[in-house]
Amino acid sequence: MKRREKASTSQPEDSMPAASIAGILLPISLFWLAWTARSSIHWICPLIAGGLYGLAFALSQLVYPLYKNEVYGAEFGASSFAVDVAMRYTFSSVFPLFTTQMVDSIGFDWTISLWAFVLLALAPVPFVLQRYGPRLRARSQYVQRREGDPPSVGAA
Results as ranks from 00 to 15, higher is better:
A138G: 07
K2V: 13
Q11R: 13
R3G: 10
V63D: 04
G50L: 15
L136P: 02
R135T: 12
M16P: 00
K6L: 12
S29M: 05
Q61C: 11
A121K: 02
A18R: 11
S40P: 08
I112E: 02
S39K: 10
A138C: 00
A78P: 12
Q61V: 03
M16N: 07
R145N: 06
M87R: 08
V125Y: 00
R131S: 11
Q141G: 14
R145S: 07
Y53C: 13
P151W: 14
Q11T: 14
Q11G: 10
A74R: 07
L120H: 07
L129F: 01
G73D: 05
G54D: 12
L66T: 09
A123D: 11
R38Q: 11
P150D: 10
A49S: 04
P126W: 08
M87S: 13
A123S: 15
Q130R: 15
Q130Y: 15
L97I: 08
A123E: 09
L52F: 12
I28Y: 04
K68P: 08
I21K: 01
A34T: 09
S80L: 08
G54P: 13
N69A: 12
P46I: 12
E5Y: 10
Y67Q: 04
R3Y: 09
A116N: 05
R145F: 01
A18G: 09
L25V: 05
L136C: 02
Q141K: 15
Y64D: 05
R131H: 10
I106F: 02
K68W: 13
S10E: 08
H42E: 13
P27W: 07
P150R: 13
I41A: 04
D149V: 06
Q11H: 11
R88L: 14
R3T: 12
L62D: 12
F76T: 03
L52W: 04
V83I: 15
Y132M: 10
K6H: 14
L33I: 12
V118T: 00
A138Y: 06
A19K: 01
G154A: 09
P12W: 06
Q11D: 09
W110E: 10
L33V: 09
Y142I: 05
